[in-house]
Amino acid sequence: MHSFGYRANALLTFAITILALMCAMASLSDNFNTPTPSAQVQVLNINWFQKQPNGNDEVSMTLNISADLQSLFTWNTKQVFVFLAAEYETPKNSLNQISLWDGIIPSKEHAKFWIHTSNKYRFIDQGSNLRGKEYNLTMHWHVMPKTGKMSADKIVMPGYRLPAEYR
């Protein structure tokens, strides 16, 4: 009844239960944080804008992104993955989301940043619908916890428009 095996088993079970409970509590404690992030994006320049030989429009742009995501960080936050996506509608597609830039923020100290960059991923449409197209730029972030539930949110910045002619 009180052999070594039983005691080891009881100890292990208890330890794992406590560990699981602590992980669950750490994950739940994220709910007490109400973040107030902010972001601004400027399109500084359209570097070029053309139709590929296969008929898809492609655009290259220079962006100035500034954001303050410090309030997303809690003690259970391992990193925040942040990306900027262009979102627009076309007659064929009810939604197009194209990631233009992304980054990994490892700690709170790096969560207030600004960056001047051209688009990291190619901005290519499915088809030729980008001339004069109105689009939103959306700052998305995904909070990766040390353990537990992942969470995500976004800021939509509407009212951007691509030029009416290729250049």
Binding site: N93, S94, N96, Q97, S99, D102, Q126
Partner: peptide
């Protein structure tokens, strides 16, 4: 997922992925 194109009529999606 880094790119999504969702069809108007059928709701089908084209998705492109990338490892961080």
């Amino acid at each position: 997922v880094i790119k999504v194109h969702e069809r108007e009529d059928t709701g089908e999606v084209d998705v492109l992925t990338k490892g961080d």
